[in-house]
């Protein structure tokens, strides 16, 4: 068990190391001299040289990388060129909004999708099953772009029930959460359904039936637990990539979170911010995946052998 976890941890660190190299090279690939960005227009030649030395641009690339990575490990993510502030401070201030959005969406998505998927999977071919499949296919075909605009139109403009811009009350959260949760619920319902179908066809379930245990008990006590394994994996993946989902939603609904920040900093060519956000996203993804592996090895002890 411990050996397996160490192996996974080692792989995770390699991935993070490579992502940090990519994030570092990203800034070097962009046209323009970073020293010029820090100085006012028409700065004299000596000032530019001085700034280059101060930023370490005169050193070889690998030295620059080690300077960068040691700064990152000390919590110094650089200075944003568009905000003239520490990148770490800006990002830190934006995190609560995005985390709130992501957790609410995952919570409501699971609340609807897991029971739906499990019931559909245990009654394959029934009306519930058909409804579940249509719900899932429709959700997976909904572009977040179109769904968010549609929600704004229907609930904000047409019915006038809910606010469509900004944050504050719970009413402000309904539409963004709905927009993020539906596509998520669609894929969770689908994977819960197929997980249930797979589990119900296993030998140990047949054995429990043979012992004379009632159908309801078999489904909810014995099969449910194992059907959860792919669900936990998927929810982890969804949480790990929540930033991707929130870019559109935060932009449309005017939430000042990380997703909106990424969109703006790409527009502003603020590469220090983009670089750090890239690194943070990858780190979130790797950490959450690692946690998911640990959780799954507790739910189904057979999993750790497969590693």
């Amino acid at each position: 068990m411990l050996k397996y976890l160490f192996k996974r941890l080692f792989e995770a660190l390699i991935v993070l190391f490579c992502v940090s190299i990519i994030a570092f090279l990203l800034i070097r690939m962009t046209p323009g001299n970073p020293a010029l960005m820090m100085l006012p227009d028409g700065a004299p030649e000596e000032a530019i040289r001085e700034m280059e030395i101060q930023l370490g641009l005169d050193k070889p690339l690998y030295v620059q990388y080690f300077m960068y990575i040691s700064d990152v490990l000390h919590g110094d993510l650089g200075v944003s060129t568009s905000y003239r502030q520490d990148v770490a401070d800006i990002i830190w201030g934006r995190i609560p909004v995005t985390v709130e959005l992501a957790l609410l969406s995952v919570f409501f998505g699971c609340l609807i999708a897991i029971p739906l998927g499990i019931i559909a999977g245990s009654r394959q071919g029934s009306a519930t099953d058909f409804f579940c499949m249509v719900f899932a296919l429709l959700g997976q075909s909904m572009s977040p772009v179109w769904l968010s605009v549609l929600n704004v139109f229907v609930f904000g403009v047409w019915l006038g029930w809910l606010p469509t811009m900004g944050t504050g009350t719970w009413a402000h959260a309904v539409l963004p959460v709905l927009t993020l949760a539906y596509p998520m619920a669609a894929s969770i319902a689908r994977i819960a359904r197929s997980g249930m179908i797979d589990t119900l066809s296993e030998d140990y379930i047949t054995a429990t039936y043979a012992k004379g245990i009632s159908g309801v008990k078999v489904h909810w006590k014995y099969a449910f637990r194992n059907a959860l394994v792919p669900v936990v994996t998927l929810v982890g993946l969804q949480l790990g990539s929540f930033l991707a989902g929130t870019i559109i939603v935060e932009t449309v609904f005017g939430w000042a979170g990380i997703g909106q920040l990424l969109n703006q900093s790409v527009g502003n060519r603020d590469y220090a911010l983009v670089q750090s956000l890239l690194l943070i996203t990858a780190a979130c993804f790797v950490v959450i995946n690692f946690v998911v592996d640990v959780i799954n090895s507790f739910i189904d002890p057979r999993n750790k052998l497969g590693g």
Partner: peptide, 23 residues
């Protein structure tokens, strides 16, 4: 496989946004 892990660690939309902005 590690190359796959690296690409997977960055969500598709973010990868696309950042690359389009840089390239």
């Amino acid at each position: 496989m590690r190359l796959c892990d690296i690409v997977l660690a960055i969500p598709n939309l973010i990868l696309a946004i950042v690359f389009m902005a840089v390239m």
